[in-house]
């Protein structure tokens, strides 16, 4: 069976500076992987490169997604093929309505799969349903994308989008940071509701707190552009106790 995501020896530069320095990662279908690591270790760089953000120079390595060469696909093609990036810093887009974006995104994916546009009524029912789960108020429907949202609202909106789009591979970049405990539980419930044998999830996080609610199958520690250590969920607990220096030291 092919892996959901297979990263081999990935080297990525920004402005000539090497950020990812030969990264390997294998995510099987149905698995949840957590990637932890100190600030600046390259976690967001990895997430962005997987989603196709411009500005990164990929100098070597391969990434295959469901057996396809991920780098051969444009960002929008990746999205329609089931890759979803939950942004560490969701972007505010004044003038573009939240629901409009959700519907356009869903229809783009449906078109890719030869499906007709979603029925307006069904769509609204679906969105309202997921909004309830994410504890997002009705006023959201008439607001612009992320505009004037609190940090927590933005993160919940990312998960709402994920729930509506039902991606095969979700890459969530620090979706937990800045959330209070109640919001964290809401976000975790959203992530867990999508967990299934056909999907996979990469959780990028700085703290192990989220992992109490979304229990990962594997935990990796990213230090200085490489996976320095991998293990099961107990690795997260150990990191919490001993700090990243423990791994950095071990990797050096």
């Amino acid at each position: 069976m092919t892996a959901m995501l297979s990263i081999r020896n990935l080297v990525v530069r920004i402005d000539g500076k090497e950020i990812l320095k030969g990264l390997d990662l294998e995510v099987g279908t149905g698995e949840v992987h957590a990637i932890m690591g100190p600030n600046g270790s390259g976690k967001s760089t990895l997430a962005h490169v997987l989603a196709g953000r411009p500005g990164y120079e990929i100098t070597s390595g391969t990434v295959s997604y469901q057996g396809r060469d991920l780098f051969a696909l444009a960002p929008e093609e990746r999205a329609r093929a089931g890759v979803f990036l939950g942004f560490q810093y969701p972007v505010e887009i004044p003038g573009v309505n939240n629901v409009y974006l959700l519907k356009a995104a869903l229809n783009a994916a449906r078109k890719e799969h030869g499906l007709a546009e979603v029925d307006a009524f069904e769509f609204l029912t679906l969105v309202r349903d997921k909004m309830k789960l994410m504890r997002i108020e009705d006023s959201f429907l008439s607001r612009a994308v992320n505009q004037g949202f609190s940090g927590g609202e933005k993160k919940r909106n990312e998960i709402l989008q994920m729930l509506v789009l039902e991606p095969k591979l979700a890459i969530l970049d620090e979706t937990d940071s800045g959330l209070d405990i109640d919001a964290l539980k809401v976000v975790a419930a959203g992530v867990n509701s999508l967990r299934s044998p056909e999907r996979a999830c990469v959780l990028v996080t700085h703290y192990q707190r989220l992992l109490e609610y979304v229990v990962p199958d594997f935990v990796h520690v990213l230090v200085d552009g490489r996976i320095a250590k991998s293990g099961d969920r107990t690795l997260a607990l150990e990191l919490e106790k001993r700090g990243y220096d423990w791994v950095s030291g071990a990797a050096a």
Partner: peptide
């Protein structure tokens, strides 16, 4: 660019994303 990438990352094609952002620019 950030807005554009955000829309692309949600599966909108480039032309639609650009038109949407132009529209948003005029919204005021």
């Amino acid at each position: 660019d950030n807005m554009l990438f955000y829309l692309l990352s949600r599966g909108l094609d480039r032309d639609t994303a650009q038109r949407l952002l132009k529209w948003a620019f005029l919204a005021e």
